[in-house]
């Protein structure tokens, strides 16, 4: 089955939601986030470096996630991101918005109950 490629705008709108969801339960580094997005969407969604990191920094600036450098023995230090309290609230709100949005689209386009 051919996978739909989502265009840039759509990606952008959903990116925050995706990133916040992925760091909701545990802290993750940037590469891990990008790999998870790619694998869980079975390749339909992919963020390249040039767009992922500006997004991470923006979320950080807005106080939704917090990054910090973590040293692990025998490894290079890496920057891990975790969700903040504000981030959790926003995630909840976005989730419900998104669900409402998808439901609305579905209703109009009749994708599920055609």
């Amino acid at each position: 089955m051919p996978k739909p490629t989502l265009d840039r705008e759509l990606k952008k709108g959903s990116a925050e939601l995706l990133i916040l969801s992925l760091v909701q339960d545990r802290q993750r580094h940037g590469y891990e986030i990008s790999k998870l997005i790619e694998s869980r969407s079975e390749g339909a969604l992919r963020f390249n470096v040039a767009s992922l990191y500006p997004m991470l920094y923006r979320l950080e600036k807005r106080g939704l996630i917090q990054g910090r450098w973590v040293d692990k023995a025998g490894q290079r230090r890496r920057r891990y991101y975790r969700i903040t309290a504000t981030g959790k609230k926003i995630l909840l709100a976005q989730r419900s918005h998104w669900q409402a949005f998808v439901a609305a689209i579905n209703q109009i386009a009749g994708i599920e109950n055609a």
Partner: peptide, 20 residues
Amino acid sequence: RELSEGSQLEKDLLRVEQQT
């Protein structure tokens, strides 16, 4: 290619980093 795709990096970063 990934690094330069859409040549957005500079612009996006500029927007983020110049906020403060």
